[in-house]
Nucleic acid binder design. Structure first.
Lengths: 237, 237
DNA sequence: TGTACACAAATTGTATTCAATGCTAAAGCT
DNA sequence: AGCTTTAGCATTGAATACAATTTGTGTACA
């Protein structure tokens, strides 16, 4: 393709979704219509359409007369998330095992291949997107329009939470991710076998693993400091 | 208020939501931007915003370059609905019992009062809306942003399904609705007592009752026609 | 008679312009 | 000095005009 052509509305949608998922646009960040329109070379009218659509999908929030911002994350977000996620994802995987079609299973295997590659590459944004896509495919398999909206919102914040709570250096993290990848394989097997119960159980396991990873981050091991070190020995909280 | 003033965008949103919920705008109906703009006395630009927002909420569907239509109902809708509804609503009521605040409980009682009044009035559109509002309040009590999107979509189609599958004349229907109203009271009591298990169980009961009502309609008792009647005895399909 | 192509009408998408609203900061008042 | 008021600025909302896409219709041709 010769020369970067003017981005279409769909391009902008994808671009913004991407930026939000990998937190290059941080939660709560203000989105200015004028500058975004300039940035993507289209007028404000279609750009507003884009923001409205992203609002519908849960990526952004729009306040009347006060513009759009990236969907915020509050102090209750994590709790709400892990409260809802196992149930919804359990249902999704159960239905996926029930309804998956051969072409979809092929797509899921492909998605897992990409996920494994992203693990090796060490690119954590690529990993978050690949993981997102893997789960998105399972959502398509489930094919229940009433579960889809909540599931999609969970996927958005799952990606964002993963981007936040991740230490590439930590060897425990690497091990945790390897386990996650193995669970993906097990999920594929359960779906292919049509084993609903196994699929639902794997959903729970998968979230427990994810929660462990985050707990590791939120509540780290105490610093290793013995008595007699230079640091003060008593502290007020 | 002297003279009907020009409707604001919020008015149009509410009006369209209402029309869709009570099926005055039928599922799948085409929504023409120009005529809607003329109908509500605002230009196409804000009206498109409205349609985009309604699309995000699940009321309408927008196809690129081919306009908007009221969210369709397919032959799988009912199945998908009753598959997802008990689980989601069970979770909602469980969380409602856990988190409900006094003001919200007062609002719920008020909603139930309105619902009872609508039962007596016999206005089935008013009944659908009042029921919708009752459940909406429970959703606010649950206060989980990840369950909310799916729950809202369930509420939309619950109202529409109720409008479709209802025979005002049928005495069984009246009895069924009276039971539903009693369940509402039980739901209020469970929430007020903070009894999560009871609330969750009532959610299941409530959907089973609703499903019974619809099954009554979809699979009615066979017509009572004995051999030797005037009607032709053999027919081609 | 059926199909393919081309043209015309209708409807949606985009750009530009103008109006209204919210935010910021400076001035006046208590 | 601290609070309220008010004026200017920046940003969002609405309206109109224009462009592009889709759909329907008609005609020519196999």
């Amino acid at each position: 393709m010769a020369g970067t052509s003017k981005p279409t509305k769909t391009d902008v949608l994808d671009a913004l979704r991407h930026l939000i998922l990998v937190q290059e646009l941080a939660p709560g960040a203000d989105l200015d219509e004028a500058s975004l329109a300039a940035r993507y070379q289209l007028s404000r009218t279609p750009l507003r359409d884009v923001l409205r659509q992203l609002a519908g999908e849960g990526y952004v929030e729009i306040r009347e007369n006060r513009g759009a911002r990236v969907a915020a994350m509050s102090h209750t977000t994590l709790r709400d998330f892990f409260l809802a996620a196992p149930m919804v994802y359990g249902a999704i995987l159960r239905l996926a095992a029930r309804n998956a079609r051969p072409l979809q299973i092929a797509a899921l295997k492909e998605a897992q291949k990409t996920f494994r590659a992203s693990l090796r590459s060490g690119d954590i944004a690529a990993r978050a997107l690949a993981n997102n896509h893997f789960h998105d495919v399972t959502g398509q398999m489930a094919a229940n329009i009433y579960l889809q909206p909540s599931f999609q919102r969970l996927l958005i914040d799952h990606a964002r939470i993963s981007m936040t709570f991740f230490r590439p250096a930590d060897p425990e993290m690497a091990e945790n991710l390897d386990k996650a990848s193995q669970q993906h394989d097990a999920i594929i097997a359960a779906i292919e076998a049509g084993d609903e119960a196994a699929a639902a159980a794997l959903a729970i396991d998968h979230w427990n693993l994810s929660r462990d990873r985050i707990e590791q981050f939120v509540m780290p091991a105490a610093l290793d400091m013995t008595l007699g070190d230079a640091a003060p020995q008593t502290r007020t909280l």
